[in-house]
Design a protein around this nucleic acid. Structure first.
Length: 643
RNA sequence: GCCAGCGUAGCUCAAUCGGCAGAGCAGCGGUUUUGUAAACCGCAGGUUAUCGGUUCGAGUCCGAUCGCUGGCUCCA
């Protein structure tokens, strides 16, 4: 469908709406905005220099179009809230969200009284009513002072604050306001032609949010919602949210008996049940094997340390809010460790190192404890005690790029094994940072070189690095398309200097090493919690807590079933047996709900033919299979870590 | 930490206006011996998160504390 229109001389000065209507009359009803030289503008704007314009259609697949809809819907929400809750309602900001898994927009209000989720349907109803009135969105450009007066009149103090801020920017003389019906807002736009396009939306939740995201400011009431042009797309979206809820690791973690927490032990402290522990242990074994193959050396460091070490590292100064109070041991202050680096550095410093020794790569499953505010704790994903898959590489400047490349390769291999796609960001020097320009130059270049050399797509996050060095950050994309904080590779220009980590070079002089912090999984708590959701609890056979269960059809075949179980166990598989006096149907149901990959059903026929009737979680019934053959099949599946 | 909401048996949930705390599953004891997603009967299970208050009477109303949930902030 051609939506590009060339602009002729006699179109000059006409509004976009006029031009579109005369050129694309059959589409006119679906056009909501236009792109002019890549810029989105309202239909009411007029064309001057542009040679051609592109009509933007009401279409959920067009990101721009969807963003406009959601933004306009947030204005509609504000209008409804203002009408229902009175003129004292102050509205602040209400953007569209395009990358959130759940939400499509929000609006933050300063309300005279709190509101609860139960009131959302009432607000939705009002929104629907207002939408049906097809109120026109009118763009108004006003000089700064005049715009402020407009909001002054209606008591919208937050808007005045925003205008003042905009006015500080260079070359700003006017701001744009949008009016639809009785509602006026400060807004860059563009917006829909009228509210009639808003047909498929839903308000989803109410939450608190600080004004400007700053905890020192007032707590506002945020209402989240989502909107689409097409009702089916809204329905699909809501179903997707429901799917995600069913995968919630807190729900499945309980159902599959993976972990729990206890009020008595304390919030944010994970109890790994046997099922969770075997998953974790299997991952740890895989991780250690993979690291050992790639030249890492396994180390262990203590869980508490004299706090002097954190004075030297600077953590006590910069991170003390995250650290637990000191405990007095023989008159000295000790701390529970919040990170592993100082320990690894001390192992490095335990000997004089030669350039011949480098690179040195230490890895550890290091359990650390950090104070997290209560409100941020969340299942296994956000906790107070967690085990990082931590490693530190000590190398020379010349070795840095190669080390980064090996790390990126390791990350890629491990993430793909678990079935994750991922996105990459390169985070550069932030404003507040230590180190020389030159150091930041070569360290950032080393990271960039690797990404370029390997032809990886990445985004640059300007100023997104840590104060002590640049980093590569990966975001995992799970089977529902949600993004998770993933691996990180950070160059550290700070700690080697603070701890005087040096080696003797070929020139017989002392040089400071370059240090790289890196984690592939992040923390085992978060990673396993994420995996539960990624797999919806159905772990691939190599990770499944129970890989197969033997189900005798009656008591008469319990002995034969035990024989099979023993044989499989002898071959190293995790196999259970269900000798309860339930019928097979019940046994199958139980194993199905436990998401066991294989069921081996045995009765008269199987006993006679020395087989088992195999039922696979993935492929259904596979028929009668000899035990040896089954062992071959499952071994291959486990060895290849197939998904 | 902040805002809002929630907390009843191991789990999932009932209990009208403030009026005797109840069911299913799981557990335990029997009966049954079973062929591809739930056999039957019975038993037991509770200081309704904790502490205090209002009331003749509180799971229900009020306050505090603890925990959890959705967010903000932060981050592995």
């Amino acid at each position: 469908m051609n939506t590009i229109i060339s602009i002729g001389e006699n179109d000059r000065g006409k509004t976009i709406r006029e031009i579109i209507e005369s050129n694309l009359s059959e589409l006119a009803k679906r056009i909501i905005a236009a792109r002019v030289d890549g810029q989105l503008i309202d239909l009411g704007a007029s064309v001057n220099e542009a040679r051609q314009i592109e009509a933007v259609l009401a279409d959920d697949d067009d990101r721009d179009a969807l963003e406009i809809l959601r933004h306009s819907t947030s204005h509609l929400l504000a209008q409804a809230v203002r009408q229902l809750y009175g003129d004292e309602v102050k509205y602040t900001i209400g953007p569209a969200l395009m990358d959130d898994f759940k939400y499509g927009f929000y609006y933050d209000f300063d309300l005279p009284r709190p509101i609860s989720t139960e009131e959302l349907p009432k607000i939705e109803k009002r929104m629907t009513k207002l939408a049906q009135q097809k109120q026109t969105f009118e763009r108004i450009e006003l000089p700064i002072e005049q715009a402020k007066e407009e909001f002054e009149k209606i008591g919208q103090t937050y808007k005045i604050e925003l205008i003042d801020e905009i006015a500080k920017e260079e070359n700003v003389q006017t701001v744009s306001l949008y009016r639809h019906g009785d509602f006026l807002d400060l807004c860059r736009g563009p917006h829909l032609p009228h509210t009639g396009f808003i047909k498929a939306f839903k308000l989803l939740s109410v939450a608190g949010a600080y004004w400007r995201g700053d905890a020192n400011n007032k707590m506002l009431t945020r209402i989240y919602g989502v909107a689409f042009y097409d009702k089916d797309n809204l329905k699909k979206h809501l179903e997707k949210i429901e799917q995600a809820q069913k995968r919630d690791h807190r729900l499945l973690g309980k159902q599959l008996d993976i972990y729990s927490t206890s009020e008595l032990i304390g919030p944010g402290l994970i109890l790994w049940h046997p099922n969770g522990a075997i998953i974790r242990h299997t991952i740890e074994r895989f991780w250690i094997d993979e690291h050992t193959k790639r030249g890492y050396q396994l180390v262990y460091t203590p869980h508490i340390a004299n706090e002097k070490i954190y004075q030297i590292s600077g953590h006590l100064e910069a991170y003390s809010e995250m650290m637990y109070s000191p405990m007095d041991i023989d008159g000295q202050n000790f701390r529970v460790k919040p990170m592993n680096c100082p320990g690894h550095i001390h192992i490095f410093n335990s000997q004089t190192r030669s350039y011949r020794d480098l690179p040195i790569r230490y890895c550890e499953f290091g359990t650390v404890y950090r104070y997290e505010p209560t409100g941020t704790l969340h299942g296994m994903l956000r906790v107070r005690g967690f085990t990082q898959d931590d490693a530190h590489i000590f190398c020379t400047v010349e070795q840095l790029a190669d080390e980064i490349e090996d790390t990126v390769d390791l990350i890629d291999y491990m993430l793909k094994t678990f079935g994750y796609e991922y996105k990459i960001a390169l985070a550069t020097r932030p404003e507040k940072s230590i180190g020389t320009d030159e150091e930041w130059q070569w360290s950032t270049e080393a990271l960039r070189t690797v990404l370029e050399r390997r032809n990886l797509e990445y985004e640059v996050e300007e100023g997104g690095g840590v104060f002590y060095g640049p980093k590569i950050q990966m975001m995992l994309v799970d089977s529902l398309g949600r993004e998770w904080q993933g691996p990180t590779v950070q160059v550290d220009l700070n700690l080697p200097r603070r701890f005087n980590c040096t080696y003797i070079g070929q020139d017989n002089a002392e040089h400071t090493v370059v240090m790289v912090h890196r984690a592939v999984l992040g923390s085992l708590e978060r990673f396993v919690g994420g995996l539960v959701e990624h797999y919806a609890g159905a772990f691939p056979t190599w990770l499944a807590p129970v890989q197969a269960v033997v189900l005798p059809v009656s008591e008469k075949f319990n002995d034969y079933a035990r024989k099979i179980q023993e044989k499989l166990k002898d071959n190293g598989f995790r196999v259970e047996i269900d000798c309860s006096d339930d019928k097979v149907g019940a046994k199958i149901r139980r194993a199905t709900m436990a998401k066991v990959p294989y069921m081996l059903i045995v009765g008269q026929q199987e006993q006679e033919s020395e087989t088992a009737s195999v039922r696979s979680r993935k492929q259904g019934q596979l028929g009668q299979i000899k035990t040896d053959e089954f062992i071959k099949k499952i071994s291959q599946e486990i060895d290849s870590k197939s998904l």
